[in-house]
């Protein structure tokens, strides 16, 4: 680990000041410390933001939910409002990592977490994300866990977050504050596809700080849930996952929010699947038909071809679990 100076800030202005001078924010630290130890990350200054007042979970005026950036994963998952209103968020959180890590990691940090691509984590391997221009060792290497959607010639790394998949499905908004004031970024625009600049992962300006993630209100009842498929039963990143939220009224699906994880360079929203569901009546046939579109545009690699079929089946299964089989 490279040496770094450390400062703990007590208010947002102080944080932004430190961030503007090139300081690196640290919240839970579960990704950052790990990557610093691998020398993938080499910040010169760490800015501890854990004392900032960003810990609340509040209902917004419009009936949505605003989760403070420093709310820990465990707290967010256990929060009564989150559990009752958006089970997909609670489930995605509780299927992530381990109880210990969820006690440390925060919501803001979770969506900032970096890929688990082993070549990214190994500073002796070529990786355009870590070292632009050094090539992508994963593309022709061992790429079982890599992305099949949203990839580019430069990068095929998967975004590892589970809750980000739920946020993508629910069309959350990321609230940030920076030297030029506060702004809001639609979740779909917050995480960036690699394109030719895989080193750019979030739509944040230098020194900007996430303050909250806001989930919009949906018509009630909204049934939702998260399914995570992985080799072992727990404590593993997703091979595939599906976040599904459905609003059914009068026997007809009025709202459908679907996204997939483990398959994309960013959490992968599935508008084609959603479109297929809207206006239809829940049935096993509908789930199967809609899920056929889940892997549209997929570009599998040597070791992750199975993800194409697995993704469709994952989405189909989760549509059934959330929507029932009537």
């Amino acid at each position: 680990m490279y040496p770094f100076t450390f400062t703990k800030v007590s208010d947002t202005a102080e944080a932004l000041n430190a961030g503007h001078r090139g300081g690196r924010y640290i919240a839970g630290g579960t990704t950052l410390v790990d990557l610093m130890r691998e020398t993938v990350e080499r910040p010169e200054t760490l800015v501890d933001i854990s004392a900032l007042p960003l810990r609340g979970v509040t209902v917004t005026e419009r009936g949505g939910l605003r989760i403070g950036a420093l709310v820990r994963m465990a707290e967010a998952a256990a929060h009564a409002k989150v559990r009752t209103t958006y089970p997909v968020i609670s489930e995605a959180l509780e299927l992530s990592a381990s109880a210990q890590l969820r006690n440390m990691a925060t919501i803001g940090g979770n969506i900032m977490q970096r890929t688990r691509c082993t070549y990214f984590r190994d500073v002796t391997a070529g990786c355009n994300k870590r070292e632009p221009g050094s090539g992508c060792a994963a593309r022709d290497g061992f790429n079982r866990t890599h992305a099949i959607l949203g990839t580019s010639d430069a990068c095929v790394a998967t975004h590892p977050s589970d809750v980000a998949v739920a946020f993508a499905a629910l069309q959350a908004t990321v609230h940030v504050v920076g030297p030029d004031g506060a702004r809001s970024i639609p979740f779909a625009d917050f995480l960036l596809r690699p394109g030719s600049t895989p080193e750019r992962e979030q739509a944040l300006q230098k020194g900007e700080l996430i303050t909250a993630v806001e989930i919009p209100a949906f018509p009630r009842p909204l049934k939702s849930g998260y399914l995570k498929v992985r080799d072992r039963q727990s404590y593993e990143f997703a091979l595939t996952s599906a976040a599904v939220a459905l609003h059914v009224r009068g026997g007809v699906i009025r709202e459908a929010k679907v996204a997939a994880g483990g398959v994309g360079t960013v959490p992968w929203k599935l508008p084609a699947v959603e479109k297929h569901l809207i206006g239809e009546r829940p049935s096993q046939a509908l789930w199967a038909e809609a899920a056929k579109h889940a892997a549209d545009g997929a570009r599998p690699l040597e070791h992750n071809r199975f993800k194409v079929e697995l993704l469709k089946r994952t989405v189909e299964r989760q549509l059934r679990i959330v929507g029932g089989t009537k």
Binding site: V33, D34, A74, Q100
Partner: peptide, 28 residues
């Protein structure tokens, strides 16, 4: 030493955490 095994688990302020990923300097 990477948060992937739990052998380092301790309680910090009553919560179980991975001490390997916890920087001591942050524990004021």
């Amino acid at each position: 030493n990477a948060g992937a095994c739990g052998a380092c688990t301790v309680l910090v302020d009553g919560r179980r955490v991975n001490s390997c990923l916890t920087l001591a300097v942050r524990l004021e």
